[in-house]
Computed example of a mutant assay.
Amino acid sequence: MDFISVVNQHFQLLTDQEKVIITYLQEGNYQIDDLTSQRLADACFVSRASISRLLKKLEIDHFADLKYLVKVSHCESLVPSVFEEVVTSYHMYIDQIFEKLDISEIVSVLIKTDVLYLYGTGNEQKLEVETMRQLFTALGKQVIIFFDKGEYDYAKAGFGVNDLLVLFSYKGESSEGIAILEDRQFLGVKRLVFTQTSRNTMAQLADYQLYVPTESVKTPTRLTYEVSTTFYFVIDKLFFAYQQVIDGEKV
């Protein structure tokens, strides 16, 4: 079994501190052969006992076993991506989005929304947010974008009970995104998260979730490029579904 599968099986049991350790291991900005439990603890600002508790939760007997799973995962991810394989995956993703993704509840929420507030956790997500703003502004919806938590803190005083807060995040572990969703002063505002999977903190904190598959491509420098065109497909699907409902009400 690969490292990601092991983590996903036990994700519900992990604390925020343990998720930080998992994120560090996934990013791979270290030499795996030189990694010890103490070095991992120091890098994540935790104790060795925290590493031991994580191993126990993941049902991994020894730190060496953890290193092996992570090493195999990194080796597999460093295989050069073939464009045809990415395209094949996208055919499958598009089929899932347009044939199987049920957005009826989200569209109903959008219809009843007075003001749509949008936030993207990264640079690419901010571009997706801007696309959504343009489309829904064209449909007559009032849309407000904020670019960081400071702008959110300023804007939240104007939130109404019929407003919707939408956050875009690939991994769903953004510290700012989590802080916004945990803001208990404004729990009356409905919250929707666009993210890759349900197994992340932001998705679990939101009232509504849209899970959008993407394709991760490893570069020679170990940086990950996220082929996230599917996020735009979902935005388009929301736009057309919303427009159809509005047109039907006008008839």
Rank of each mutant, 00 (worst) to 15 (best):
V234T: 10
Y119N: 00
L116K: 04
T195E: 09
Y154H: 10
Y170S: 13
L118P: 01
D247H: 07
E151A: 02
L135M: 13
D207P: 07
Q26F: 14
Q134P: 04
E124L: 14
Q134N: 13
Q12C: 07
E151N: 00
L181W: 03
T230G: 07
M1W: 03
F194R: 06
L66V: 05
Y119G: 00
L223M: 11
N162D: 14
V115A: 04
V217S: 04
Q244L: 13
V161F: 04
V107N: 08
G120T: 09
S81F: 06
Q185Y: 08
L13N: 14
E27Y: 05
D114G: 12
N162L: 05
F136C: 10
F186N: 03
F168G: 13
A138D: 15
D42A: 06
D42F: 02
Q125T: 06
I32A: 10
V46Q: 06
E85Y: 04
Y68Q: 10
D33I: 03
K19R: 15
D42M: 05
E84W: 03
D153P: 00
V166H: 00
V107C: 07
L164D: 03
Q185K: 12
Y225R: 02
M202S: 03
K149Y: 00
L66I: 08
K237E: 11
L78R: 10
K67T: 03
F233R: 15
D207K: 06
R48K: 15
Y211S: 14
Q185N: 14
N29T: 07
D236K: 11
V20A: 12
E182Y: 04
E151R: 01
Q9W: 02
Y170K: 10
I246S: 06
Y242K: 09
V245L: 08
D163G: 02
F231H: 08
V20L: 13
I94L: 12
E99K: 15
E84G: 04
F186K: 01
S77M: 07
T230Y: 06
C75V: 05
D2K: 12
